[in-house]
Design a protein around this nucleic acid. Structure first.
Lengths: 107, 107
DNA sequence: TTTTAATATTGCAATATTACGATGTTAATT
DNA sequence: AATTAACATCGTAATATTGCAATATTAAAA
């Protein structure tokens, strides 16, 4: 039905899946990689760099913001989007915990 | 349009996003966690454990198989699905590389 | 060889996602 | 105050995903 039955999973599982899901689009991967190579990020640069329409880029940025991976700061009439390093490291640790606690083989 | 413009991204970006995407559903996270706590995995157990219909579980297993995270072995009339530990560790390393090379702050 | 058990596959219905044009909004510039 | 620049949001079309019932398929058991 296109709708995920979140009720039947734990909050931890839903949370983790949500992180993975947001990272599960090449545009968002590309955005993060591009930002990390810049000193300042302006959405317009991204539009040229990534090759998607401005509205689409804006939407992807919103999703990255929604899980706290990006900080947006108003700078005049531009926006400066930056990776939230604390959150980034935190997420990396959570994913590693998931990987380390979920690797036993059964057969 | 619901269609991702994969052509405009690098293979590495598409690949990475694909991994994230497959892990981006709580049922698949739950399946991996459950399997890792068992010695043998039978789909029927999963149906009871997870609480989704057999057809749905089968579909999720297929997606996990598609990125090589699960090995399926026929065992009589049952299937034994196991985490592919080599692939699992490989994926963990790839994700850590991504996280480590994508963390500079700009603002 | 019929039956049964354990999946896989197919075919849908419902909802989500992706993408973009058009249109807001906001703040600097003129 | 009007204009411009840089986004954000809205509305919508196209496609993807989720989920399940029904129906294969496959191999052991009877």
């Amino acid at each position: 039905m296109g709708i995920t039955k979140s009720q039947i999973f734990t909050e931890q599982q839903n949370d983790l899946a949500q992180f993975f899901k947001v990272l599960g689009h090449p545009a968002r991967v590309a955005i993060l990689q591009y930002i990390s190579n810049q000193n300042a990020c302006i959405c317009n640069d991204l539009v040229e760099e990534i090759g998607l329409a401005q509205a689409t880029i804006s939407q992807h940025l919103k999703e990255l913001k929604s899980i706290g991976l990006l900080n947006g700061e108003v700078e005049g009439k531009s926006m400066c989007y930056c990776i939230n390093v604390e959150r980034w490291t935190d997420l990396q640790n959570r994913l590693n915990t998931f990987f380390n606690t979920t690797k036993s083989n059964c057969c």
